[in-house]
Design a binder for these strands. Structure first.
Lengths: 214, 214
DNA sequence: ACGCGACTGGGACGAGTGACCCAGAGAGAG
DNA sequence: CTCTCTCTGGGTCACTCGTCCCAGTCGCGT
């Protein structure tokens, strides 16, 4: 094995652990499975990390940051807010269909953290990040379509995350694409109905504003 | 240990396993932990069950049946459908607050089954049962308040379950009672708005037509 | 070029794990 | 009462787990 810095090794181990978790679940992410995936020796693991939990902690931080990045990139700019929300949900759902075990792993990580002494605080941060991301998405979506929300955006963000989570679990259980589609339709209709046209600013017609919003 | 029938022993072990899972999670439900909780010997476990997985299988069947019973008993008969839905959600949320780890365990069981060869089909049955229960609750709720649903009840049931699951995960992560309350308010408003007064009718043509529409 | 210290590989340890086995206890049938 | 068959207790097996140790190695600064 080539000699690399401890920091690089930590990152490589976290990436390898993610692949293992994706494939075999959190339970299957043993130190041996991880170092095998990373093609390292067991000793390298404990040279880079004090313990497995320390690695899990770093892994969760990485995942949270990564999810935030991905979903912010996926923001769609559709004609109306209802379509924008629907497209956003569809984008997530396509991701779920493409990598079901990855999304399942995210939920497993929450469960695992909640059960593991010393890691109880991580889910709080994880969900704070989710809510923040949802909030940013909703804000940008409204901005791009010239609308504004009639409900505090924190509440909207929580609704969106709840529906996304619920959609995920149910779909993982029964893989019913049609039902998932209907659920997303409903969510988009409902959330879309909570936006109203932004009052016209002085000297700024709607068409212009829409054009600028790109 | 007293001599009891194999069937009783199976039931006792399942109940003990549920207590262990409630306390320590699915991961902590080892055969030894379960027999210790049930105050039996390890041999009794493998006399009653061929394997741990066989016990888990029976446990999930028991849990699904039990949840259905409990939620059907909790049906409230409030003045209007919106309040009825809100009260139902609150009843569930109170249960969640009283036994957080039990609801977490239910989700862990889904994740575990999805990851365990031979148990992949169980979540499908579990969610079919959830949807059925939600459906019955919605039907009875509408009936008691003299309303009828303007959306196919299967879709409504899935919405209700999704929101409940999403509510559960988020609350388990951040324990924000106020936000959970607002989410339930929103769900009740939204779902309540999908019911209309049942037309008084000799022979009730609309209701009959709706019933046929299945 | 060379020594030092960061890094690696293989092996080992102790605690658990699910599964299994067998001698024997004891309740119920005859 | 005695026989039979279900059920029990304790012990054991093979295996996996996280963690640790130590001899050796190789890059880097001097």
């Amino acid at each position: 094995m080539a000699r690399v810095s401890s920091a690089e090794r930590r990152a490589a181990l976290v990436r390898a652990a993610l692949r293992v978790i994706d494939r075999d679940g959190v339970h299957g992410a043993t130190t041996r499975a991880i170092v095998a995936e990373a093609e390292m020796s067991l000793a390298s693991f404990h040279y880079a990390f004090r313990s497995r939990d320390e690695m899990i902690r770093e892994l969760i931080a990485f995942v949270v940051q990564d999810e935030q990045r991905v979903s912010l990139e996926a923001l769609d700019r559709d004609a109306d807010i209802r379509s924008a929300v629907r497209a956003g949900l569809q984008a997530y759902f396509d991701l779920l269909k493409a990598h079901p075990s990855r999304e399942q792993a995210m939920q497993e990580l929450v469960q695992y953290s909640l059960r593991t002494p010393g890691l109880e605080a991580l889910p709080l941060a994880q969900y704070a990040s989710y809510f923040h991301t949802a909030r940013v998405l909703l804000e940008r979506g409204a901005e791009l379509t010239g609308m504004e929300w009639t409900m505090p955006i924190e509440q909207l963000a929580r609704i969106l995350i709840a529906i996304t989570d619920g959609l995920t679990i149910a779909w993982l259980a029964d893989r019913d694409d049609v039902a998932a589609g209907r659920l997303m339709d409903f969510a988009a209709d409902t959330i879309g109905a909570l936006a109203v046209e932004m009052p016209l600013a002085v000297g700024m017609p709607l068409a212009v504003r829409n054009a600028d919003a790109r």
